[in-house]
Design a protein around this nucleic acid. Structure first.
Length: 312
DNA sequence: AAGACGAAAGTGGTTGA
DNA sequence: TCAACAACTTTCGTCTT
């Protein structure tokens, strides 16, 4: 891969929303805005402004065209290695003579040794394939996968993986990526998809953000509300009312110290009642993965304070 | 009969000595 | 490391629609 000129990089920098102080770099090869420091991938599908040259005839084009697969963090060697086909055929599909076959076999052997050389490389290789399996299962966007794999690489460098479960650390890296990209996925969901126990996932997650000194923005209750309303197929008017109730609740300091999902459930319940798109406590409790009793408790608190103060 | 309500006891996580 | 504590859950009997 060719190096970009410094002037091009620096003309495009901005701040990373996670670590704040380091420059972001536009990476046109994989169409992303990447933080060179923490690996946070801000956006995908950046418009490729290249090529910055013009070709006036086929020969020039052939000479100037850029080659190679895009650079990515999600393959253990960053997708830059050579692949040797397993078939003993040449490019026209003819079988190779035995002498050449033996040569290719030797090449393959060395290829394996070079690619997956150390135990660390082996670890990384299996971890990253597991990672893409899980993100697939949770239908997470590409930038989460990229961010998570950078996190995992850093964790390996910091020697946090040795002696711990790869599976749990992979799941934790994914959860960290979700949180940092402000994507609403609960510990439970990630645990489910990766078949890691929620408790262990939580432990690994805390370990990662502590040891890697990551800043993780706190989860927004309003995002819980949105997600819950989607799950319950409540929208439009009801969603609007729910968010207004939530705002009022926040003003009255009724949300602090309470689990966001129970607040979200109560707010959704009240809103569904007001707007006539009625859902039972049971339905909401199930969708929010909490009990009806908790909804009732929050509901009572909210009703006592809010509905008197504000006329919705 | 289904849903809502609430008391009481139990659980798991956090905090502070 | 342990106890105190708040939030939440489980269970179950009662009330309301």
């Amino acid at each position: 891969m060719s190096e970009k000129t410094p002037s091009l990089e620096h003309s495009l920098v901005s701040r990373c929303p996670i670590c704040g102080n380091s420059p972001l770099v536009h990476d046109y090869e994989c169409a992303e805005l990447v933080c060179k420091n923490c690996g946070y991938v801000v956006i995908e599908k950046l418009v490729d402004r290249g090529p910055e040259w013009r070709a006036f005839n086929p020969e020039q084009r052939a000479k100037k065209v850029r080659v190679g697969a895009p650079f990515t963090f999600t393959i253990h060697d960053k997708g830059l290695s050579t692949q040797i086909d397993w078939r003993n055929r040449d490019i026209r599909g003819r079988r190779l003579p035995s002498k050449q076959r033996a040569q290719i076999n030797r090449l393959r052997k060395w290829q394996r040794r070079v690619r997956v050389s150390s135990s660390m490389e082996r670890n990384l290789a299996s971890a990253l394939s597991e990672m893409s399996r899980i993100t697939d299962k949770l239908s997470l966007p590409r930038n989460i996968l990229e961010t998570a794999s950078v996190t995992y690489r850093t964790a390996i460098k910091e020697k946090l993986i040795r002696g711990r479960s790869i599976k749990a650390m992979v799941a934790a890296a994914i959860y960290v990526a979700c949180r940092r990209c402000r994507l609403m996925r609960t510990l439970g969901e990630v645990a489910e998809a990766s078949s890691v126990k929620e408790k262990e996932l939580g432990r690994s997650y805390r370990l990662l953000i502590k040891k890697l000194d990551y800043f993780v923005p706190p989860a927004k209750t309003s995002k819980y509300v949105t997600k819950l309303l989607n799950k319950l197929v409540l929208k439009g008017k009801c969603a609007e009312v729910a968010h207004r109730i939530l705002r009022a609740a926040k003003e009255l300091k009724l949300t602090s110290g309470r689990a966001p999902k129970s607040i979200a459930a109560a707010v959704s319940y009240i809103s569904s009642k007001i707007t006539g798109e009625y859902r039972t406590q049971r339905e909401i409790a199930e969708a929010a993965q909490i009990t009806e009793v908790t909804i009732r408790n929050r509901y009572k608190e909210l009703m006592e304070r809010i509905l008197i103060v504000t006329s919705l």
